[in-house]
Design a protein around this nucleic acid. Sequence first.
DNA 1: TTAGTTATGGACCGATCGGTCAACAACTAA
DNA 2: TTAGTTGTTGACCGATCGGTCCATAACTAA
Lengths: 190, 190
Amino acid sequence: MARPRKFEEQQVLRDVRDQFWAVGYEATSLDDLVRASGLGKGSLYGAFGDKHKLFMRTLDDYVTDSCAGLRQSLDESERAVDGLRGFLLAGAASLRQGCYLANSTTELAATDSEVAERARKAYEDIVELIAATVERAQREGDLPGGIEPTAFARTLQTAQQGLVYMGRSGLPAEQLAGVAQDLADRLLRA
Amino acid sequence: MARPRKFEEQQVLRDVRDQFWAVGYEATSLDDLVRASGLGKGSLYGAFGDKHKLFMRTLDDYVTDSCAGLRQSLDESERAVDGLRGFLLAGAASLRQGCYLANSTTELAATDSEVAERARKAYEDIVELIAATVERAQREGDLPGGIEPTAFARTLQTAQQGLVYMGRSGLPAEQLAGVAQDLADRLLRA
DNA sequence: TTAGTTATGGACCGATCGGTCAACAACTAA
DNA sequence: TTAGTTGTTGACCGATCGGTCCATAACTAA
């Protein structure tokens, strides 16, 4: 290792991610990242590669952490349907900040195939988690057996992303919360 | 007028909008706009002002046209509930391209108050249109009278924006169409 | 101590950014 | 015709972009 790094990698990645998150990928300059991380340009390049590699790293970490958190939240719910409700309501929590993956996908997926592919995989993974929980809710008698789990999981995911977007668009928090309740009530009734 | 303009304003605005739409605001350079419009930089500035003014103009036009189209589509529906269903399904039509307003809002609303304000107004206008159509559907007996029109309009709008986003994220067209049908069936049942 | 290795940080690079401007072209009114 | 006005064009501007490089610092192994 010779000379040791003077920074904590995870902390730097979080700071960099927050900078990208705050203003977007294109609007973030290397100087912004230097300022946010406290590192010099050379260190940033040496440790993480160029701007795009660094960005993809923060996006990967975000997706990994988010999926792990979702899995845990779903598994922790004694009744699966409560987990599904929590998943929906979570979409109304981020407000103006939005979701890092959704913001990045909207900005870049049409022109950046790496981002597009990452998003596709992430949403497929989430659908799998949700679908498994839908099946559990059916076994627990909280959702009709006739529902096709994967298709319904996509419906829930779409509703959740709608909430995320309406929050980003500036819909007032209390109105957004009302929509979230309404959607949960309508989509998760037995 | 002295020397007449050699370009058609509406056509230039559409070309410029399509360029912004294709890659985003920040990723579009003035040279891109010169190329897309066929005009020189000076002409573009003389006619529309700077990059941001030009962008806001295209966004305003898009919102105006979209709202007019929606109003017409809703009014043309013999049964209001069919208009509402059409509104939902329309969210699944744009696919990767997404919605110009939604793309722009996600990219810019957090840092550009003009865009944020424009988006907020647009979505409020749309909620009004939808709410009026919800009331009509109630009078026509296709929706329960107990529903609060404005709140339910926001629920439908949120679901529609979820569809728009999932399309942008790359969800395959046939799956997106399935989600749209599913959402319409679940949210618009009497 | 010394030789070797890696991390640091900012000076520096060519390219490109958004925006300006002056010379010129194309019209109208007198 | 001529004077006045407006539109067009691309050369040009300073600023900033993403990225490189290197002198130096901070360590380890011999």
